[in-house]
Design a protein around this nucleic acid. Structure first.
Lengths: 236, 236
DNA sequence: TGCAATTATTGAACGCGTTCAACAAGGAGC
DNA sequence: GCTCCTTGTTGAACGCGTTCAATAATTGCA
């Protein structure tokens, strides 16, 4: 077998990239973000320092990988919990709890993600172009939550609902990041008690009496969304 | 006159501290946060690098001064605009627009503030102990906005309203930070169109029919607030 | 097969934020 | 005046993230 000559075909760079990423993930988990030096990552990956920067523009860019990984785990954990469940409230509950469950291992350094999240300059912020793929997938998940439920929201609301639910999820995560309670109990409480309220609001919003208010809110959201100041700054 | 010997009494350290702060503010305004080095600050202040660190623990701590300064300017700008105005909606509008007006000069590096804002570790985050004084004053301002208006919210809502309005203000500022439109037009739109909605929601919330929903929301907020996961992490 | 072009990899350097041992100034108590 | 103690101040160092010119390895093409 042409061992040493057969593998190079299969993306030499890809392999090195993966090696570096794995090393970084391991060290971040072990020591946290700040305590992990790029030199340590390079050494752990059996690679020179400069080489690490050939594959990743910055230390923070390594964190983006977590964002992706954590998202994939969220998808995997959510799917079975949604299966056969038609109740909208329960579907949202399941999705959010799954998010917290799968994010738990990364809690200690996920603050870094949101630190950049609030920085318009950073490509890591959830509204940026770099985050677009993951963001779109997360919104698509919320679409499934809505569509396969028994809830039948008015068409105008239906259109914006997935995006709004994603924003809501982002809010929950922001709370979770600051949450130092045992087993993230407070975040659980937040979820368990806001989801029913959100559900009630959506049902209320479907009521014709409140149509003017609902339409005002939705028009505003649409206006601020496409050509949104947020994504505008992020896409840059 | 005992010039050179009279002044040292008057807080030698205070003077040096002020010199460093002034230099930092000037340079931040001129070049932004990242482009300003601590060495430049020290030089501008005619002081050694080490000396700057005698007065300020870190570069970011220098930014906190802006937070305070900007807040004082907000207070000063808001007072006359509230004078004689009793309409709640207009009072909130005036307060928020004043905030954007006075913050404008700092727009380019205020992202730094919110970067730390989302970092639970940082003393700069608006929920932290270090920010308590300014936060309390900002909430007190919202108290004045509510109390001297013609609005008569139910007592339970009245109690939480200032805090909620402050959170709302924080949300607006977050949007503003990401806003790259000319003269921050988008943020103006956001304010002009969400304030009426918020006002309507508050009035709706006063309606007895919606009392259960209102009470559920308020109970939740109270529960999450004192011993709040946010301030809990921040006060640390 | 040979050669240019592309892709990987290195190690040394730079500039930055931050720390620290050392030293100076200025008072308080004798 | 002298000693001790607190407060200020310095400059050199450290470790870090990041950059870059140089070089090796690999690939695409004639």
């Amino acid at each position: 077998m042409t061992r040493k000559t057969a593998t190079p075909r299969a993306g030499k760079g890809e392999q090195t990239r993966a090696k570096i990423l794995d090393a970084a993930l391991a060290l971040f988990m072990e020591r946290g973000f700040e305590a992990t030096t790029m030199r340590a990552v390079a050494e752990e990956a059996d690679v020179s320092l400069g080489n690490a920067y050939y594959y990743f523009e910055s230390k923070e860019e390594l964190v983006q990988a977590f964002y992706e990984k954590s998202h994939q785990e969220h998808l995997a954990a959510t799917a079975p919990r949604l299966d056969g469940e038609r109740d909208f409230r329960k579907r949202v509950l399941a999705t959010l709890h799954a998010k917290i469950d799968t994010s738990e291992p990364y809690h200690r350094f996920s603050g870094v993600l949101f630190r950049s999240a609030a920085d318009p300059q950073s490509p890591l912020n959830p509204f940026s172009g770099a985050s677009k793929r993951v963001r779109d997938e997360a919104i698509a998940l919320m679409e499934r939550v809505v569509d396969e439920s028994s809830l039948g929201p008015p068409a105008d609301l239906r259109r914006e609902l997935p995006y709004l639910l994603w924003l809501y999820e982002m809010g929950v995560i922001l709370f979770w990041i600051f949450d130092t309670s045992r087993e993230r109990r407070r975040t659980r409480v937040l979820i368990d008690r806001t989801v029913p309220i959100v559900t009630r609001l959506i049902i209320l919003g479907a009521n014709p009496i409140l149509a003017p208010l609902r339409k005002a809110v939705l028009r505003l959201i649409r206006d601020l969304r496409d050509g949104d100041a947020l994504s505008e700054a992020g896409a840059r």
